[in-house]
């Protein structure tokens, strides 16, 4: 009898406790929902601040010239036109600039894929004498940050070699990035098993075939990363192509072409051409990023941890 009373009391107590727990859970869930809304508001505001400058510039590039300079807060064009792009392309020289940019990008990527991976490979497998010294000197140069400081000497050397042109831009852009890329590749190759190359060696393969037939295909993950980094750096490069084309507008890349329009001495900036030209640079790489996000992110994390 006391047992049943206790049982009833216990059940009551349990019910009260359960109700209490339910209330706590409900409140916690509500609090979390409020918290979630607040988080999304903050993240959303930052996302808006991030894309707004790009969107305004993007839509302004489709506005007629006379509308670009008035009513700044208006996002969408009153009247859509491709005239800015047509003028930039046909009269502004941007068709040439585009070709020049493509030349630089393709050149840099080709050199980088071959030369950085070759050096990274022989360093990783310790096939060259003084490999560690080479790596140390190269690594040390990263910390000097003499990019701008050595622009003039680099230009002079290029002039002496007769390559103060787009070929020089390709070679110099590449020489600036090969250190980091070589290190990334070297670190990756050391994680690859050497047995396959050993087998090739026993079969009488030379270093070239061990590299090209066996190691190179296995390097694909890291080479994807370095190629993305090379593309990003050479497509967006400003300083070096600017200096190399100071006296030769024909050789300007897209980025230099856009800056040249902003830097007019009389301050009569041609915003229609500037905006169209800027979009020719921004839109392709943003589209590429949309498709290859993973690789861009990998380039960032690997590049910055190493670099």
């Amino acid at each position: 009898m006391t047992a049943t009373q206790e049982q009833v009391a216990g059940a009551d107590q349990a019910r009260v406790v359960r109700a209490g727990q339910a209330r706590v859970l409900r409140e916690a869930r509500a609090r979390r929902r409020v918290g979630h809304v607040a988080i999304y508001v903050v993240l959303g505001v930052m996302a808006a601040l991030t894309v707004m400058p790009l969107l305004y510039a993007f839509f302004a590039s489709f506005k007629p010239v006379e509308d670009i300079l008035v009513d700044g807060a208006r996002l969408l064009p009153r009247e859509w036109t491709l005239e800015n792009y047509r003028i930039a392309w046909e009269l502004g020289g941007f068709d040439q600039y585009f070709q020049n940019s493509l030349f630089v990008v393709i050149g840099v990527i080709t050199l980088d894929l071959l030369f950085s991976s070759m050096l990274g490979f022989v360093l990783a497998r310790k096939l060259v004498p003084f490999g560690n010294t080479i790596a140390m000197v190269m690594g040390g140069s990263l910390f000097l940050g003499m990019g701008t400081a050595t622009l003039y000497p680099r230009l002079v050397i290029a002039q002496q070699l007769g390559i103060d042109n787009l070929v020089g831009v390709v070679l110099l852009e590449f020489s600036g990035m090969t250190v980091i890329h070589t290190f990334l590749i070297r670190a990756f190759v050391t994680t690859l098993p050497a047995e396959l190359e050993d087998a090739a060696r026993v079969d009488g393969c030379g270093i070239w075939r061990a590299y090209w037939m066996i190691a190179f295909p296995l390097m694909r993950p890291i080479l994807t990363t370095t190629t993305i980094l090379a593309f990003q750096a050479s497509w967006n490069a400003f300083q070096l192509p600017y200096v190399f084309t100071l006296n030769d507008p024909e050789m300007r890349t897209l980025v230099v072409g856009v800056y040249a329009l902003r830097a007019t001495e009389d301050g009569s900036q041609a915003y229609d051409l500037i905006l169209a030209g800027a979009m020719l640079i921004i839109v392709p790489i943003v589209i590429l990023f949309a498709f290859l996000q993973r690789y861009f992110l990998r380039g960032l994390t690997e590049g910055s941890v190493k670099g």
Binding site: L54, V258, I274
Partner: peptide
């Protein structure tokens, strides 16, 4: 979205912000 500015040429964004 936050990553997007990183892939764009900062030199071009300088000119774009000059306009904005």
């Amino acid at each position: 979205v936050y990553f997007v500015p990183h892939v764009i040429s900062i030199a071009v964004m300088g000119v774009v912000f000059y306009f904005l």
